[in-house]
Design a protein around this nucleic acid. Structure first.
Lengths: 146, 146
DNA sequence: TATTGTTATACTCTATAACTATA
DNA sequence: TATAGTTATAGAGTATAACAATA
């Protein structure tokens, strides 16, 4: 077995590199952690939502979301409102400072995504898209079966 | 921007899931860390090599390799021999216990890789392969330019 | 003076679970 | 009894750089 052609290894190295491209923007230029960035990105498209919705959207654990939200609230980027439908939970909403930050980050990371994907022809992009979906389903099967 | 269709996010989630599939084998069943597994896998195909070669093959930092090697040596899985060509370095080689461990892990992780890739038709696999290579090159450009 | 590999240190991240308040 | 979210804590991983030995 050649590790460098082993698919899971290739994906891990590739993913690390792509993540670094994006992290250079949200971390180095805007001081956000990955979790904070994900919470902001999820909130920006949502308006006002419950924590559980964020957890689902971002693929983060409730604990990670809890901590990221605490930091973002402390920094004045979002607010937590009591949930009228469930006294245990909160509704989360970006504040103007959070929206402004998001508006600055998005074009930069989207430019990077575009630069990456421009390496592919439209039909290659389609195949890649479907391949990721199919592989992801199979990976989930394996993870679940242990 | 919808985070769930943002390519770097999709790749990160996908990669995490695939890594988990493989880690279930080498970590949960054989007690290896990711770095230890990479060092063993690289060594297994190489025979006797210098540390620098491992660093190159595994995409790990010299410090991570140094620590993984120290643990693997302590556990009797590999040995370090003085490098006759360079008194600063070492030659690394798997011991029988290391080879035996590798021989047990490989079929299991390869079966998982096969199960994943069987989701794709041969031509899809080719496109995926080329796409990863092209995207990876572009990502490296971005990482380097900062 | 540069390079190989080790060690130190502080920091972040992760995983598990206990805990509170409410349903 | 179960669930939403918080907190505690210990362990693992990460990043930076200092360091000794050798080139």
């Amino acid at each position: 077995m050649d590790i460098q052609s082993f698919f899971p290894y290739r994906i891990a190295v590739f993913s690390e590199r792509v993540s670094q491209c994006i992290a250079q923007v949200y971390r180095e230029r805007f001081g956000l952690t990955r979790d904070e960035w994900r919470v902001i990105a999820a909130l920006a498209e949502a308006g006002k939502v419950r924590t559980a919705w964020i957890i689902d959207k971002t693929t983060l654990e409730k604990m990670q979301v809890s901590r990221a939200v605490a930091r973002l609230e402390r920094d004045g980027l979002l607010e937590r409102l009591p949930d009228p439908d469930d006294g245990r939970g909160w509704l989360l909403r970006l504040l103007p400072a959070g929206k402004a930050l998001y508006a600055k980050v998005v074009p930069m990371v989207q430019a990077r995504e575009t630069f990456l994907l421009d390496a592919l022809a439209p039909d290659e992009r389609e195949v890649l898209d479907r391949a990721l979906t199919k592989l992801s389903e199979r990976a989930e099967v394996l993870v679940r079966q242990g």
